[in-house]
Nucleic acid binder design. Structure first.
Length: 440
RNA sequence: GCUCCCUUCGUCUAUCGGUUAGGACGCCAGAUUUUCAAUCUGGAAAGACGGGUUCGAUUCCCGUAGGGAGUACCA
């Protein structure tokens, strides 16, 4: 069975970059009738919080990305210790005692000589007696996985054939000096234990994948198929992380972005398919294929969400909006007619409030100087409320007759006088909904 | 510095050596419309640069430039 996972660390709010990863994995699982796991990577107790974990779940639920299983790494520490021991048993795990400062110094030295800053494995030369002495002196060391210095190759679901020389990568630290298990070990261990078959993540992980493949092989487990999608950049190609603040899922939600609009964009952006509003998640599942994505960095423009959201809102049925309208205080008897009029001019759900304010309170007439006389004439011919669907037509016909004006010159001043705006819903249908007239 | 990936209209992309280089979004124009939107029709718009290979390069190779990523006792 196909098993995918989304593995955020609860150290912040989800943003569009995270969503891309989550969505790809979700779509694959759903398309294959498989399982989608939400895994909270909270091995770092300093930065992980329950609040962020809750927020992540809330954001995913908002989008309808439901998971079949949830795990947290902090619950699985015993298992990681077992895995670590199994690596010690096969002699692929070794303890090191360099301090961060010493490692930093080594790196700088290598860099100066034009060499790659790879750990020199000097700890491998330590005898048991040396290690005892070091432990007595500095406390427990940190543990590195010993890579095989060969080329690591895999066929990536998006990038194609990848080959990385293990010698160009440092032996990864899997356990810190203070005993904390690190991401690489926990992630590999979980993927193996949970039977994850497809790992899709950002291309910032390709080097990790190389080392993880060796660790998985060392654990005698099956290597899942990997795919690395391109990273999102800003409209100018700048790293998105610099402006992630405004691109958190929560902010987008607060701005009125609709889930289906966001999902439609994220599921198709960077692929060869056209970005258009999907009618349902099923549509996105159906058309999804990793092979459609390019590997070049993808520019993300949040402005694209506006039209998609607008289109979605305009297509919302009254039933789907009923609760929102009731909350605004729109009386039930006119709410369907009101929404029918307001929807085509609403970019977000919140816009309904604007139109309702107009209907309920009326608007100060907007009258251009050159139209003053014409508008005054028209006012005199305006029938008293209540108005019906025929009022606008009959009134404008009478005004046309009286003044000789026609077309835009006839209608626009009247629209502005009644609504205070140069644009808005169809006047014929809007008039019966106007509860108040401020035009004296 | 080193390693990996990338570079086609403004944007996302198609093209498995020979195409008028296609589509979508956006943009512009026209039609329609009492406004805006929507819709329809039409239009402008691209192979980073330099070398090769080849009868022929957007496509294959090398180089340059540019972009992204990694190079943590973070994830």
């Amino acid at each position: 069975m196909t098993v995918t996972r989304f593995a955020p660390s609860p150290t912040g709010f989800l943003h569009v970059g995270n969503l891309r990863t989550a969505l790809f994995n979700y779509l694959i699982a759903r398309q294959q009738g498989g399982q989608f796991i939400l895994r909270l990577d909270d091995t770092d107790p300093e930065r992980s919080t329950q609040e962020f974990a809750d927020a992540i779940k809330e954001d995913l639920e908002w989008l309808g990305l439901t998971w079949d299983r949830v795990e947290r790494q902090s619950d699985r520490l015993d298992r990681y210790e077992e895995a670590a021991q199994s690596l010690r048993d096969i002699d692929r795990f070794y303890e090191c005692f360099e301090t961060p400062t010493e490692l930093d110094l080594k790196r700088k030295k290598q860099l100066n000589m034009g060499k790659p800053p790879v750990y020199d494995r000097s700890a491998l030369a330590l005898s048991d007696a040396d290690k005892d002495a070091m432990r007595a002196d500095r406390g427990n060391g940190h543990w590195r996985f010993k890579l095989n210095h060969a080329r690591i190759e895999w066929t990536d679901g998006i990038l194609g054939d990848i080959s990385i020389d293990a010698a160009s990568v440092s032996d990864p630290v899997l356990i810190r000096g203070d005993g904390q298990f690190l991401y690489t070990l926990a992630s590999v261990c979980d993927d193996v234990d949970f039977g994850v078959t497809h790992v899709v993540r950002g291309s910032d992980h390709v080097t990790n994948t190389a080392t993880q493949i060796q660790i998985i092989e060392a654990m005698s487990a099956a290597v899942p198929s990997f795919a690395h999608h391109s990273l999102l950049t800003g409209a100018q190609g700048e790293a998105l992380s610099k402006r992630l603040g405004t691109l958190s899922l929560r902010d987008l939600r607060a701005q009125g972005v609709e889930p289906m609009a966001l999902l439609s964009l994220m599921a198709r952006l960077g692929s060869s398919d056209a970005v258009e509003l999907a009618g349902s998640m099923d549509e996105l599942v159906e058309g999804f294929a990793l092979s459609k994505y390019g590997s070049a960095p993808t520019k993300f423009n949040g402005d694209d969400l506006g039209p998609l959201t607008s289109r979605y809102v305009s297509s919302l049925s009254y039933d789907a909006m009923a609760d929102d309208l009731r909350a605004l205080g729109v009386p039930d008897d006119i709410a369907p007619a009101f929404w029918d009029v307001a929807r085509e001019n609403s970019d977000t759900r919140a816009d309904a409030q604007r139109w309702w304010a107009l209907c309920r309170d009326g608007a100060e007439p907007l009258v251009d100087a050159e139209d003053a006389e014409f508008v005054a004439t028209a006012r005199g011919m305006l029938p008293d409320q209540p108005w019906d669907e025929g009022t606008w037509g009959a009134w404008t016909a009478a005004v046309k007759e009286a003044t000789g004006r026609k077309g835009r010159g006839l209608f626009m001043p009247l629209r502005k006088a009644l609504t205070g705006m140069a644009h808005g819903p169809d006047m014929g249908r809007l008039m019966p909904l106007l509860q108040t007239l401020k035009w004296s």
